[in-house]
Simulated assay, not measured.
Amino acid sequence: MPRSKDNIKRTSIAKTALFSAIKLVNEKKCSLRGATKHFNLRHYEHCLKTGKDASDLHDNLAAKKGFIGNEELLLVDYTQEAGKLQYGLTSKDVKRLAYEFAMKNNKKYPAQWDKDQMAGEYWLRLFRKRHQKQLALCKPEAISIARSTAFNKQNVQLTYENYKKLCPNAHN
Rank of each mutant, 00 (worst) to 15 (best):
Y99A: 01
Y163C: 10
V25W: 02
N70D: 13
V76K: 04
R125Y: 10
P168L: 03
D77C: 14
C138M: 10
R147D: 12
C138R: 15
K107P: 04
S148D: 10
K37M: 06
S148Y: 14
Y44F: 14
L158H: 07
V94H: 04
L85Y: 05
G34S: 14
N172K: 11
E121Y: 12
Y87Q: 15
H38K: 08
E81H: 02
E27F: 06
K104Q: 03
H131F: 11
Q80E: 06
V76I: 05
S4H: 13
G83K: 10
L32I: 14
K139E: 05
Y78C: 06
K129W: 04
K9L: 06
A14V: 12
V76Q: 00
E121K: 13
Q154C: 02
S31R: 05
D56W: 07
E45H: 08
K28M: 05
A17S: 15
K95N: 07
N26G: 13
G83N: 11
L61I: 05
C138D: 10
I13A: 04
E27K: 10
A142M: 09
Y99R: 02
H131K: 04
E45K: 15
G83H: 06
T16G: 11
I143C: 02
K37I: 04
L137I: 14
F151S: 13
Y109C: 07
A17W: 04
P140Q: 03
P168Y: 09
N7C: 08
A102C: 07
K92E: 09
L48N: 03
K153Q: 11
P2N: 10
R130H: 13
R33G: 07
C138W: 00
K115G: 08
C47T: 00
A98F: 04
F127T: 03
E100W: 05
L135S: 01
T36V: 14
L74E: 11
M118G: 02
